[in-house]
Design a binder for these strands. Sequence first.
DNA 1: GAGCTCCCACCGCATTTTCG
DNA 2: CGAAAATGCGGTGGGAGCTC
Length: 288
Amino acid sequence: MDIRSLEVFKAVAIEQSITKAAEKLNYVQSNVTARIQRLEQELGVPLLYRYHKKVSLTPAGRELLPHANKLLYDFEEAIEAVKLSSAPRGTLRIGAMESTASTRLPLIFSQYHKKFPQVELSLYMAPTVDQVSTILEYKVDGAFVDGPILHPEIVEYPVFEESLVLITSFSPEPFQLESILHEPLLSSFAHCIYLGRWQRWLEDNGYASMKVMEYGTLEGVLKCVENGLGVTVLPVSMVESRIHQGRISCHPLPESYGKVPTVFIRRRDSYMTSALSQFMELVGITNL
DNA sequence: GAGCTCCCACCGCATTTTCG
DNA sequence: CGAAAATGCGGTGGGAGCTC
């Protein structure tokens, strides 16, 4: 077993395809097949289930993957150590919901980049459900999501608490709930948990659920609200500047419905790289 | 130490096999 | 039938061993 075989194995595990892994590594497919077969021969256990058009990890393969990750990272670190540099480097893939990505992350990313310019940072933006999948598939190193997640293979750390507000077009008149109940509830993606909280409040207080209208992007949703097309529910941190500019009005949700914890998650068995631990420290997570 | 040969691992290409 | 994986085969490069 050598380090390159582990690299090939990791690529196959992530891509769930020998052909795609070969493309990613700039190898021909036959080489990847041969590498995996040799690795399986050496270990005496099959690492992949072969299906038509795809492969997946056997229990032995799943067991090997976190060790391979660790070995590959240690190998990279060893090389860097020899190069007399102890600063984190390599790649760091962070996932986040659009709300976190557009409000809190720019500052965090810029601070991190200034401190550790050697680390190649990338952001994967998606709703919470998709972020959890990408974490489980080792596609990102950590992600900001709406908590709690309560998944056995995931560790979560509370980082922020968002306060939800109902957002309507600007009006100097006192807010009348009845006047907006017939309006569409605008959402930038399906199954938004913020809207869910609002719908639950309505239900608990004897009102009918509002009709949801999807409108692609967050920016689009806010423009629609400004123009009186409907209302939406978002963390107040996302709309502060618009409130100050008098473009929208906002109305806090009652505390038990309006407080949403944002948690930082990572895979329990993923290797804690120094790039990741420094990032978590910067975010304020100290109990690693 | 230099030069040579042999062996083997690695790789890519072409082809075959598999299976939805 | 087509896409992905497996197989066969030949080229290449590097290390080991040998001779001078």
